[in-house]
């Protein structure tokens, strides 16, 4: 049994890490070595030319910047919104809170694909209910100094076009995680603050907020990873070269028929570095968050 466990664990580790390790090894080989048969496992001559190619062919640094801006903003906004909701659902005595939580979690089951077209229209700019018809009417009756039409701004190819949907897509899971964390904080802590003369809002910021920091970090990491990895919406909404995110950008290296595997593998290696760093730093927190989301269901 002992041997079986050791072998199994070794297989598990190889299974989990091999594809990524293989990408790293591939990225260190030069083009000619890649197309050789039989394939080499360890690079014969290590070259960093592919990494130079990554940044030469496309503005990969810009992709990284875009991904970072979008993911970090989405994370900050989503954590704020989810923390408020999580506090309400996890700590406060309010009617229907289980139903509300189930409702919020259920929305995470909406396919992001369904949102694609309506969000595209929305970000393209659309009429504002009530306001747009009013302005059009006023313009028609002679108030020509007013703008002809009122539309929401065109958000395509801006960071907002991604930040807004990412906040919404991660909100259910973040709310779930934070709700279960808030439930763990002992009620006495808050009661003590209330007895000492804090109002409820003060108690929230002075007592609960510092204690809930670990939960917030966990939720933040998971939102960040979700946002960094999103592909479909990023592909559709931000089509300008300078506004691409990392996952979309990497798919842009492949040509019509040619797959420059060396460059692609180097790009993948660079693109997932932040994720690997997060895993290495916060593995236990991430697992706690994922399973908090899972076990509660």
């Amino acid at each position: 049994m002992r041997v079986a466990v050791v072998v199994g664990t070794a297989l598990l580790v190889i299974n989990g890490t091999f594809p990524l390790v293989w990408m790293m090894l591939t990225s260190l080989k030069d083009e000619n070595e890649l197309i050789r048969v039989p394939i080499t496992y360890w690079p014969e001559a290590i070259t960093f030319q592919n990494y130079v190619q990554v940044f030469d062919q496309l503005p990969f640094a810009r992709f990284m910047l875009n991904s970072a801006v979008v993911s970090i903003s989405a994370t900050v906004i989503c954590v704020l919104v989810a923390a408020l909701a999580g506090y309400a659902l996890g700590r406060l005595n309010m009617p229907y809170r289980r139903t509300l939580l189930t409702g919020i979690v259920m929305t995470s089951m909406f396919p992001a694909l369904v949102l694609l077209v309506p969000l595209y229209r929305m970000f393209l700019g659309m009429d504002v209910p009530l306001l747009s018809p009013l302005v059009a009417f006023l313009h028609d009756v002679g108030m020509t100094f007013m703008p002809t039409e009122v539309r929401t701004p065109n958000l395509l190819n801006t960071y907002w076009a991604l930040i807004i949907p990412y906040v919404a897509l991660s909100l259910p899971i973040a709310t779930l995680i934070l709700t279960s964390f808030f439930q763990l904080i002992p009620r006495d802590l808050e009661s003590a603050a209330l007895v000492d003369g804090c109002t409820r809002v003060e108690a929230l910021f002075k007592v609960i907020a510092p204690v809930s920091a670990p939960g917030v970090v966990t939720a933040a990491i998971i939102i960040f990873v979700n946002s960094w990895n999103e592909f479909l919406l990023a592909l559709t909404f931000n089509t300008a070269q300078t506004m691409r995110t990392v996952p979309v950008g990497i798919t842009m290296y492949q040509g019509e028929f040619a797959f420059p595997w060396a460059t692609i593998s180097a790009a993948i290696t660079v693109g997932v570095l932040p994720l690997v760093a997060l895993i290495l730093l916060f593995q236990q927190k991430i697992i706690a968050g994922l399973t908090a989301g899972g076990v509660k269901g």
């Binding site: 664990t9 598990l12 580790v13 190889i14 299974n15 989990g16 890490t17 594809p19 990524l20 293989w22 990408m23 591939t26 990873v225 960094w228 990895n229 592909f231 990392v246 996952p247 979309v248 990497i250 798919t251 797959f259 595997w261 692609i264 593998s265 993948i268 693109g271 997932v272 994720l275 690997v276 997060l278 895993i279 290495l280 593995q283 236990q284 991430i286 697992i287 994922l290």
Partner: peptide, 23 residues
């Protein structure tokens, strides 16, 4: 083991596809 379990979860699905297309 934890890292080996987290890497597949954290990888962008598109890049997983690209990686395995190479494999």
């Amino acid at each position: 083991v934890r890292i080996a379990l987290l890497i597949p979860w954290a990888m962008p699905r598109v890049l997983v596809g690209v990686m395995f297309a190479w494999l």
